[in-house]
């Protein structure tokens, strides 16, 4: 069997360090021993595929039982490409988020803000043949999180991406432009490189915005590219 190429290592500074003391929950949850370096094999270079038959799309989060969710309706649209700028087609994208008041529909969320019976906060779509995806949702509210005194998370939407290999798996968060809380958010700042960090901020996009309906935000994502040389060489 010929070797399947692995994926390129992360560019320096582009990924967060799990040992980030300003984010308190990392204290007891980050490994202290060095990671084992091991070139990708079939296990890391291949990954799951998902059929919309088993994972039906849920692209509009703003309606539950035909009733409209409270808050500012928004459209989030973007393109998923790899580090060689090639589209990542037909890959599953999952999102979850707080409601407009900054409250998750989750028993663990004790923030004293109202739940919305018409907003669940989870969505799922697949990219098209050219890597594009789109959701309609509600702009999530900021919420407090007790990491430090008067700590508030910036408005954000959680995103999950798969791509072609287990090594391309990516969980991240999309932020909103102009949010004053970004400057003091330890999770956002866990990404060392400023340019890499700022690519987590979506941009307002008038072309995505629909007249008389919803503001549009653009959030493009890059998944790791295949290494140039086959693993076995």
């Amino acid at each position: 069997m010929s070797d399947i190429p692995g994926f390129r290592p992360a560019a320096p500074g582009s990924q967060p360090d799990n040992d980030t003391p300003s984010y308190g929950s990392t204290r007891l949850r980050h490994p202290t021993r060095p990671l084992i370096a091991f070139p990708h094999t079939i296990t890391e270079a291949t990954g799951p595929t998902f059929s919309p038959r088993h994972f039906p799309a849920l692209a509009d989060l703003t309606l539950v039982d035909g009733q409209a969710a409270q808050g500012e309706r928004i459209i989030v649209r973007g393109r998923i490409t790899d580090e060689d700028d090639r589209p990542v087609p037909h890959t599953m994208v999952e999102i979850w988020q707080a409601n407009a008041a900054g409250r998750y529909n989750h028993p663990g969320d004790q923030h004293d803000a109202p739940l919305d019976p018409h907003f669940k906060g989870d969505g799922r779509v697949f990219t098209d043949a050219d890597g594009w995806y789109q959701f309609t949702t509600i702009k999530p509210g900021a919420y407090p999180w007790r990491n430090h005194k008067n700590a508030w998370r910036p408005n954000h939407i959680h995103f999950s991406y798969f791509g072609p290999g287990f090594a391309t798996r990516l969980i991240t968060q999309m932020y909103f432009p102009g949010d004053p809380l970004l400057a003091i958010d330890p999770i956002f700042h866990s990404v060392p490189d400023a340019a890499a960090r700022n690519r987590l901020i979506s941009s307002f996009d008038l072309d995505v915005t629909q007249p008389e309906w919803a503001l549009g935000y653009r959030f493009d994502v890059v998944l790791r590219g295949r290494a140039a040389t086959p693993m076995g060489v």
């Binding site: 990924q15 490409t81 700028d85 707080a98 959680h158 999770i187 690519r199 890059v222 998944l223 590219g225």
Partner: peptide, 18 residues
């Protein structure tokens, strides 16, 4: 050439997609 997007924690409320 582009650089892969940074990861962020899955957080405590990921069960919304469980």
């Amino acid at each position: 050439m582009s650089i892969a997007t940074a990861a962020q924690t899955i957080g405590p409320f990921w069960h919304l997609i469980e």
